[in-house]
């Protein structure tokens, strides 16, 4: 079997064609199936959390793959998938200007209030 599977990690997402394009149908290989990000809600009322990524030809297949790959051990009650190319991320090179200015602004945390003893769960 000559199938070549390329693993992609964060920040290493290739610029691939979208799902359902003619190229996908003319040459059906794993290499050309776009990458999808999977978000799982573990139970009602909680947020969908990023679970991982996988390859699929279209959204339908991506959801089924996600069901088989990421919810085998009762991890979820709801699945979102989104093609990785639709996720825009910050550039690690800009981390200094983006995040470090917050480092010395500790007063932004609500840590300086005296809580009455009667208040619980804060």
């Amino acid at each position: 079997m000559n199938t070549f599977i390329r693993k992609c990690y964060y920040g290493d997402i290739p610029d691939q064609k979208g799902a359902g394009t003619p190229e996908i149908h003319t040459d059906f290989t794993a290499e050309q199936w776009p990458l999808w990000e999977v978000f799982i809600r573990s139970k009602q009322g909680l947020d969908h959390k990023h679970a991982g990524s996988l390859h699929a030809a279209d959204a339908k297949m991506a959801i089924e793959n996600a069901r088989d790959v990421y919810t085998r051990r009762q991890e979820g009650v709801s699945i979102w998938v989104v093609e990785s190319k639709h996720i825009h991320a910050t550039n690690p090179d800009e981390a200094e200007s983006l995040y470090e200015p917050a480092n010395d602004k500790i007063y932004r945390h609500p840590a300086f209030y005296d809580l009455p003893d009667a208040v619980k769960h804060m």
Binding site: T3, W33, H55, E64
Partner: peptide, 14 residues
Amino acid sequence: GHGPVLEQDIALTN
């Protein structure tokens, strides 16, 4: 271990 892609290998094994 022989599925055409990893995801479908898992699907059929499931």
